[in-house]
Design a protein around this nucleic acid. Structure first.
Length: 430
RNA sequence: UCCGGAGUAGCUCAAUGGUAGAGCGGGUGGCUGUUAACCACUAGGCUGGGGGUUCGAGUCCCUCCUCCGGAGCCA
């Protein structure tokens, strides 16, 4: 039998169809009862009338429970009063399993309880919509790079060395030595561009920071392009084109989801190139103009980012940062060696940094100096230094955190709802 | 790690130091168009653990545990 989905139900008006799914809710008013039914693609109301079905089918109205798995058959008809505009006049029901005591009720719950039941929470309406947006953000990201001549080159998750030497990494037993879970594929992508010119990697990354905020996960997904013969300005061109494409794609393909999430899409529609570009120095001036007591040289905190981004109606790119606070591989500005050619893209509406990147140091001897200056071991970086010995070129790249981007596009408060099974400092299950 | 806050029924929350309560969910019954349906009845408790003050502690004190929010770090 043809497997029909609720998302296609309009095409079957007047016909008898069979749907496979789960009971979302049941309401009875005596000789008629209603089932809100979902199949993963949407929801539809089923109606069971006592005079139209066998007693066995009608009695299921008092037996079926929330999240019981059922196959239902009946006739599709238009019905204004029904969710989605269509309903199913049910003729038969096959029960696969009666669910008992489903923990998530149609009333309010706390986030701790819901996160403990994340494996079930994913079924509810808002979570379903968020994960669908996430899917489209990932699809759009890959499409953008695929359509612009980039080659996907995967980078390892297990690594021997800390790529930036600063952040805390998770370590794992690796036979008789220790390995680390990657916090970025960047260094490897710098190797990949020597072979393919324009590349990107997309995968999970790990940070063992004991962060406890709504913007952090210990395991998150990042898409990182790297481009040969590309300076900071061109890198920013790519970043704004990329973000605009992803947002535009979601506006077009996630209309239903953004509506369910009650997202004000007006702010997203403004996300088109060019994005404002301000230097770190200019950003500091913005903070001072707003009465913030800010120490030059520091990184911006969450509140600082909100003030800076609130000056603009689209993402803002902050570039040319004090070099001392930045990673060893960042290229210095020729015009001012105290500045590194890095760029952060801050999302509007207080969502903070969604992209970090910059131009990489491409001179061998300078890089050796930087590694020494940062007290990093030279040996694990030999292959990285090789890249500066055999046909080095100016190159740049950036990384976008998928979950930060989804948090912003969906307009929700907390990053943990943008990944199916979040990993945070105090959560490893489910 | 630091600063705040919270742990009471399956869930969300009430309860002046004096008999442990409601809504939802569960169960039973009623209702031919419900929209988190509604109405009636009903079951359901080691008040996070330990110690203390008191005639008496969910409530006050100490301690531990767990979780939430924020800071730092960053995508």
């Amino acid at each position: 039998m043809e497997h029909i989905y609720i998302s296609d139900i309009a095409a079957y008006e007047g016909q008898e169809v069979t749907l496979h799914g789960w009971v979302y809710n049941i309401r009875s008013i005596g000789k008629v009862w209603f089932m809100i039914f979902r199949d993963g693609t949407g929801m539809i109301q089923g109606v069971v009338v006592k005079s139209e079905v066998t007693p066995e089918i009608f009695e299921l109205g008092s037996k079926l429970s929330q999240e019981s798995s059922v196959t239902i058959s009946g006739t599709v008809r238009q019905e204004k009063r029904s969710i989605g505009g269509y309903e199913l006049g049910i003729k038969s029901i096959k029960v696969h399993q009666l669910a008992t005591d489903y923990p998530i009720t149609p009333k309010e719950h706390g986030t701790a309880f819901l996160m403990d039941h994340r494996h079930l929470w994913l079924r509810s309406k808002l979570q379903h919509a968020i994960i669908r947006v996430r899917h489209q953000v990932i699809k759009a990201s890959r499409d953008f790079f695929d359509n612009n001549g980039f080659t996907l080159v995967d980078t390892p998750i297990l690594t021997a060395n800390a790529c930036e030497g600063t952040s805390n990494l998770f370590n794992v037993d690796y036979f008789d030595t220790v390995a680390y879970l990657t916090q970025s594929g960047q260094l490897y992508s710098e190797a990949s561009i020597g072979a393919h010119g324009k590349v990107y990697c997309f995968g999970p990354t790990f940070r063992a920071e004991k962060s406890k905020t709504r913007r952090h996960l210990t395991e998150f997904w990042m898409v990182e392009p790297e481009i040969a013969y590309c300076d900071l300005d061109e890198n920013m061109d790519w970043a704004e084109k990329f973000i605009s494409y992803v947002v535009g794609w979601c506006l077009e393909h996630c209309k239903t989801e953004l509506e369910i999430l009650e997202r004000d899409t007006g702010m997203l529609e403004k996300v088109v190139p060019p994005f404002p570009r301000v230097t770190y120095d200019q950003a500091v001036q913005i903070l001072k103009d707003n009465g913030v007591d800010f120490t030059y040289g520091d990184d911006f905190g969450g509140a600082d980012e909100t003030i800076i981004s609130s000056q603009y109606d689209r993402p803002v790119m902050v570039h040319r940062w004090p070099a001392e606070a930045k990673a060893f591989y960042m290229k210095r500005d020729e015009k001012n060696p105290d500045l590194a050619l890095g760029v952060d893209v801050l999302a509007p509406e207080g969502y903070g940094e969604i992209i970090g990147g910059g131009q990489r140091e491409d001179d061998h001897d300078t890089l050796v100096e930087r590694i020494l200056h940062h007290d990093l071991p030279m040996k694990p970086f030999q292959w990285y230094l090789d890249l500066r010995k055999y046909g080095t070129v100016p190159h740049s790249g950036f990384g976008m955190g998928i979950e930060r981007c989804v948090t912003w596009i969906t307009g929700i408060k907390h990053i943990r709802e943008t990944i199916p099974f979040p990993r945070t400092i105090y959560r490893l299950e489910p």
